[in-house]
């Protein structure tokens, strides 16, 4: 969850890219790292296998000036998508303030998309949170390929909870849809942060030490 440091006037938020294996999570971070303004980014670090499959996570710090008087740091992570790495996904998901679920639009990948989304729901629940309250957006990736499901079908399959979430079509390898997704999830995370820290659900005053 968010961390506020009034000493250094910094806010830290964590966003995790989630989805089935080879759906394009790492590509999203690579493209962001390539295309974002230099003053906003740190190094992209990948803990990957020799075959370039994510083994633990990818990590990239981003900085934005979006909250007056504070430097806002976003810690961007990806999880390993392969089914066997579920424990690793749980560890990386700890304390996430927002999630991007990246789906692979290709027809043969539908079952993996559904399994991965169910796995996300379960892992969020295990850390005491819920997709009803945790900000997340969906990204339907690989739209440039031939054998892809229509957007409506992906919506039916993955965006069918009581409250529908923002979703974006993308071709991450070409950078299409990547920044739209990033900005949408960042905005949702910031909105939730503002609501939580200045909103209606204030804790009782007797617990406050000023």
């Amino acid at each position: 969850m968010a961390f506020i440091n009034y000493g250094s006037r910094e806010i830290q938020l964590k966003i995790v890219y989630y989805g089935p294996g080879l759906c394009g999570k790492t590509t999203n971070l690579q493209i962001i790292h390539e295309m974002i303004s230099p003053q906003s980014k740190g190094d992209l670090t990948s803990l990957a296998t020799a075959q370039d499959r994510t083994l633990f996570f990818d990590f990239m710090p981003l900085v934005a000036d979006v909250i007056a008087g504070f430097k806002t740091r976003f810690q961007m992570y990806t999880v390993p998508g392969q089914v066997m790495y579920n424990m690793t996904r749980r560890l990386v998901l700890r304390g996430a303030d927002g999630v991007v679920f990246v789906a692979d639009s290709q027809w043969p990948k539908m079952e993996e998309n559904v399994e991965s989304f169910a796995n996300l729901e379960e892992n969020v629940r295990l850390q005491g949170d819920s997709l009803d309250t945790l900000p997340y957006v969906l990204q339907y990736n690989k739209r440039d390929l031939n054998d892809v499901a229509p957007r409506n079908y992906l919506e039916f399959l993955l965006n069918n909870r009581a409250e529908r979430q923002l979703s974006f079509e993308s071709t991450a390898t070409r950078g299409e849809g990547v920044f739209e997704t990033l900005n949408a999830v960042a905005r949702l995370v910031l909105d939730r942060f503002i609501t939580t820290h200045t909103g209606r659900e204030r804790q009782p005053r007797e617990l406050v030490l000023v």
Binding site: S37, V66, H197
Partner: peptide
């Protein structure tokens, strides 16, 4: 608690649509 400094700090989001 999480509101320890909220009396002195208000979080105001910039109007810009694009965070990045």
């Amino acid at each position: 608690g999480i509101y320890a400094e909220s009396e002195t700090a208000a979080f105001v989001l910039s109007d810009s649509d694009a965070v990045f």
